[in-house]
Design a protein around this nucleic acid. Sequence first.
DNA 1: CAGCATCCTGGTAGATACTG
DNA 2: CAGTATCTACCAGGATGCTG
Lengths: 116, 116
Amino acid sequence: MEKTPENCQVEDALGILVGKWKPVILLYLLQEGTKRFSELKRKMPGITQKMLTKQLRELEDEDIIQRVVYAQVPPKVEYSMTDYGRSLEPVLDAMHDWGAKHTVRKVLKADQVKSS
Amino acid sequence: MEKTPENCQVEDALGILVGKWKPVILLYLLQEGTKRFSELKRKMPGITQKMLTKQLRELEDEDIIQRVVYAQVPPKVEYSMTDYGRSLEPVLDAMHDWGAKHTVRKVLKADQVKSS
DNA sequence: CAGCATCCTGGTAGATACTG
DNA sequence: CAGTATCTACCAGGATGCTG
């Protein structure tokens, strides 16, 4: 597929990644494997149950993550990356690498302002 | 910089890329070089002047693109990528590649539903 | 030509409370 | 434990009109 602006496929990846907590959720699942709902919640202080549920549902709808419910009491639900979801890893890597450089740059710039 | 979720640098790249028209604008400037305001506007039927201005300003504030104003009548303003902005290209590439695969996958999935 | 000022709207995010 | 159900706040995005 050509990389012309008229034929922009960037939006798809963007659409899946946008959401205040999605990148973090994906990084957890990619690096630490399967996680329970409560584990994810604990890892992300500040997120509400509603938001976590919503973001997970959206990722599930896109087949990026998998949701497994255990029929037991108390309930147990586990989330993990799908093989397909793992294909997003290079994208996240590229973004992370760029973000790291960008952060460094912002710090340098702030220094310049200070010393001027 | 480590790629731990606690230290997520993905958001930075995401923050710069989100905006309904930013990826397209960047692809135009990356692939076709310097462009005037009106040229960009013509390329993107549907965008309003206000939105184009806004998106361009935001990209400029992040030093991704450069804005050059020619003191003449009628006014002429040209936009181009900065060297720094060009460093985003691998990110856009990664996202485009993924998006292209994703599109194919969605088509296949739709077919499965139809033939079932 | 390029852009600002104003007003409007829908959806994302969040706070809070309740349930199988 | 892992969710729904409401309600509220905010802002990106958009329509329209004016200007150096």
